[in-house]
Amino acid sequence: MAVSVLTENKEKFEEFKKVIEEYKGKEGPLMPILQKAQEIFGCLSLDVQNYIAEELNIPITDVYGVATFYAQFTLKPKGKYKIGVCLGTACYVKGSQKVLDKLQEILNIKVGDTTDDGKFTLEATRCLGACGLAPVMMINDHVYGRLKPEDVEGIIAKYRDE
């Protein structure tokens, strides 16, 4: 199984191999390796997990256990634009739930899902620490603050056209 992926994504695996070599000797290498893997491959498919397990010489159950425990690891590919609406206390008190509802309506997906065209993934995130700008959302690395539900449409449109 791992072989097909190796040949398909040869370049990515070459890059990933170096990452594993770098961390192999360190103590507790699994988390940083999984983080790098997700960066390179976009998600932690079973093939990638298998490969890590073999390289680190640990059972795949350990890899799978960690990959499914943490919210930021994903086993399925995500959309090109990851929208994270903050549902931290400050944002919640200032109405971020309404922003999230509006996004669900516009994108016609539920929280946690990806649009059919693979463009957007909608998530409700934990506190982003930008409470001074509440309510906020993040699209990839860009933060949008002091949002009103009616602002959302225009922001999404910008990304849609890209």
């Binding site: 507790g28 290498p29 699994l30 988390m31 983080q35 960690v66 425990f69 919210a71 690891f73 934990r126």
Partner: peptide, 23 residues
């Protein structure tokens, strides 16, 4: 060491498990 989105890792024993590369 970077977390990966688990609130419970702020608890000290959970944080250390995470540094070790466990759940």
């Amino acid at each position: 060491r970077l977390g990966a989105g688990a609130f419970v890792c702020g608890e000290e024993t959970a944080l250390m498990a995470s540094i070790e590369g466990r759940r």
